[in-house]
Amino acid sequence: MNKISVQSEPFDLAAIQDALRCESPAIGAVVTFLGQMRDINEGEAVTTLTLEHYPGMTEKALQAILDEADQRWDLMGIQVVHRVGPLKPLDPIVLVAVASAHRGEAFQACEFIIDYLKTRAPFWKKEQTPEGERWVDARVADDRAEQRWRR
């Protein structure tokens, strides 16, 4: 079963992973990606990160990404959790967990989902640094990562 959650509350990676892996004894692999907040970006200290999103579209965009992953690979469940609001260094930001019978499909689908999320889901990061606030710029490397999956 696929599940999407956009939330301000922290999440429990172990509990989510456990719920996913226990959905079916046919599952042989669970791959998880956890993105967490760093205390430095572009060479500057970052004290707080505030994540904004487009309620409504965010969930639809994530659902479209999961649907495409399901079309490309034989998967047995996906969980995506993305936090919004203020975050501190070491706070988990995003979790992508993918279950499949064998590891190859779960590894590929997990990387595909996070690559697409980074370029297609309407989230924006604003950093608070000792020098003031700044919006994070989109990264060319993220566009390249997404393009690898084009077909």
């Binding site: 993105g35 994540l51 999103h53 487009y54 409504g56 579209m57 639809k60 965009a61 993305h82 930001i93 995003v94 996070i114 999320l117 980074k118 370029t119 297609r120 889901a121 309407p122 989230f123 924006w124 990061k125 919006w135 994070v136 710029d137 989109a138 990264r139 993220d142």
Partner: peptide, 29 residues
């Protein structure tokens, strides 16, 4: 740009009642 919560482009058609959102390149994850 997104039209009715789907990514669009400069050529996307508009109709009465549409929801149109403008935003910078996304930076989630």
């Amino acid at each position: 740009v997104a039209v009715n919560q789907e990514m669009g482009g400069i050529d996307s058609p508009l109709a009465d009642g549409d929801e149109v959102a403008f935003f910078p390149p996304v930076t989630g994850g």
